[in-house]
Design a protein around this nucleic acid. Structure first.
Lengths: 337, 337
DNA sequence: TTGTAAGCGTTATCAT
DNA sequence: ATGATAACGCTTACAA
């Protein structure tokens, strides 16, 4: 029996007589042939049947961050439709080991919120497969999905300014690949390796600078982790830098929850004593009526998947900017008199 | 320049002179050679560098279930260590299409809480790669990880019996691959395709039967989704079948939250009017002090990963049964007099 | 240190 | 309807 016939028996049952097909399958059982080898098939067909996903952090991190989860959910829905697997590629930011990226058998990559200079990102973009970046700076020839972080954060700044706040503090997420928890000077703010954080800080800065508030007086504190605990300790540090602030701006909802926890511990009322804002619009933020910006994470994942899996790929890179919505909540009010 | 030299330049930089290596890399750049093809490499080395994961539901479901998430987190931690990617394989229960399973380029499979007769599971086990099943019945020659669902649920039953409950109702998760929301007779309970649900119901039944309570009088209601909404509607249905129950047993914490929501809507107090129990011990259950059984999801994922990735594989299948802890909370009390 | 040659297991093309 | 042949791109003994 020839190879071709066996291949057809598995892949094109209609191309050969049912009895021959049965004979093939029976022989396979007898001989212990487990069916076509996926890797060899991929080599021949030039299709891996999987999409690679690069995340900011080690794999397990993604399962703790509600925002990353929603993105993943949107992306997997597209993968389901395209009958494509999703390969979570280990890409710890502190590791320089890009072997996992360069040897991942995938038909394309999605990079989500990676730092601009991450070697894993570089390695993925260097691969001769399509890629989509999400929440990252545009790269020549690479499709991208994102929001206008700058404008969204400026809205939050303007909201606080309208309420009358002038002395504020900021807790932001990591700005580089190394742990650098502490106060952030303007140089580091501008040179942040994370597109999203850089733009949010810049947007806030623009709002305050326009209103005539000196930005270099505003304490900005960095935390590596996006966790409630990090938000709490970040808020504590901001308050130690300027105990007189009337509002705390966090660059994520999760950090804002931590800030609120710390304020509560200090018996400071929100918003009567200190206003707090977040960013993202995760479920808990809506429940607790945090003043925040809602961004469509699920839709981001959808769009990223669609761009990557769209068979009719355009000759030039496409760029999707999704809408955000400023959502005033009960955690902001006029500063105390 | 020979193929070998190029291969060595990429894979064994120490095996050739630095200047030659540089010459190779430069030539690669000039010629636009993107580096070794991962698929061809996998074919040759017989290593895919990825582990396949089969989940009960479509991929996106996993990102909604806190239990599945914790399992994933534990598993990915092991994958990180082994520098192996994790391939989420689309395996919708209602689909018979196993192509994604049989053509996934993986070095092994982890199957998590799949129904016993799922064709995707069969296809994965038929592949000539190692596999680990989790929360599933033992399969000849396949490593397994799980808990003693039967004993754990019996504990819950005994707890309720000790408090004096005799008329109870049950809300369980799906027992088969098709949506069959509604009351469940004993035949369907015993024939449930989901190992976990089957054993939990059997454990509860044993406790009540031993105490002399006729099990066939106890309303058991099935819901396909493991969601708060499903728990609420399931509880409502149980209450319509027997308005006189003094306790509601849910086979998951999430369903229990739904049951509590429905009881609150009916102005029934928990636990004064009706007791409620869950299963899993997710974070929210601990916060709300739900009476439940805590099971180590993270550890389950760890163990599954370890078994699969352990290079020193035993000749015979290994079986890991993890401990659970009965956690009495504030949602159970003696029935009203 | 570098090169030669033999597969890895498929599927596409073409011929019968 | 079925079969022969030629890649797919790589790694790895082994030889030079």
């Amino acid at each position: 029996m020839s190879r071709t016939t066996v291949s057809n028996a598995y892949n094109r049952p209609d191309q050969l007589s049912p009895q021959l097909r049965n004979r093939v399958m029976e022989a396979a059982r007898t001989l212990g042939y487990p069916g076509p080898d996926p890797v060899a098939r991929s080599l021949r067909t030039r299709r891996a049947g999987a999409v690679g996903l690069l995340l900011t952090d080690q794999l397990s991190y993604a399962f703790r961050d509600p925002a990353a989860l929603a993105f993943l959910e949107g992306l997997t829905l597209e993968c389901d439709i395209a009958k494509t697997g999703l390969l979570l590629v280990p890409a710890k930011p502190e590791s320089e080991d890009i072997l996992a990226v360069s040897s991942a058998s995938v038909d394309g990559f999605v990079a989500y919120a990676m730092p601009d200079d991450d070697p894993h990102l570089m390695a993925a973009l260097a691969r001769p497969v399509p890629a989509v970046v999400c929440d990252q700076p545009d790269v020549e020839g690479v499709d991208s999905v994102g929001i206008d972080d700058h404008a969204a954060m400026r809205q939050i700044g303007e909201h606080l300014l309208d309420l009358g706040h002038r002395r504020i503090g900021v807790v932001c997420m990591r700005l580089g690949r190394a742990v650098m928890d502490g106060p952030v000077d303007i140089t580091r703010q501008e040179g942040a390796r994370y597109h999203v954080q850089r733009n949010r800080l810049a947007g806030l800065r623009e709002a305050f600078t326009r209103a005539g508030v000196a930005w270099d007086r505003i304490p900005v504190v960095e935390r590596f982790d996006n966790s409630v605990a990090a938000g709490a300790s970040g808020a504590a540090e901001v308050l130690s830098l300027d105990p007189g602030i009337t509002a705390l701006v966090a660059t994520s909802d999760v950090l804002a929850f931590g800030a609120m926890q710390e304020l509560e511990r200090r018996l400071q009322r929100v918003p009567q004593d200190v206003s707090v804002t977040g960013f993202d619009g995760v479920a808990e933020a809506r429940n607790r009526e945090l003043t925040t910006v809602v961004q469509p994470f699920l839709e981001k994942g959808h769009q990223a998947g669609k761009l990557l899996l769209d068979p009719a790929r355009r000759p030039q890179a496409r760029k999707v900017i999704l809408d955000t919505e400023f959502l005033p909540g009960r955690t902001t009010a006029a500063p105390p008199v």
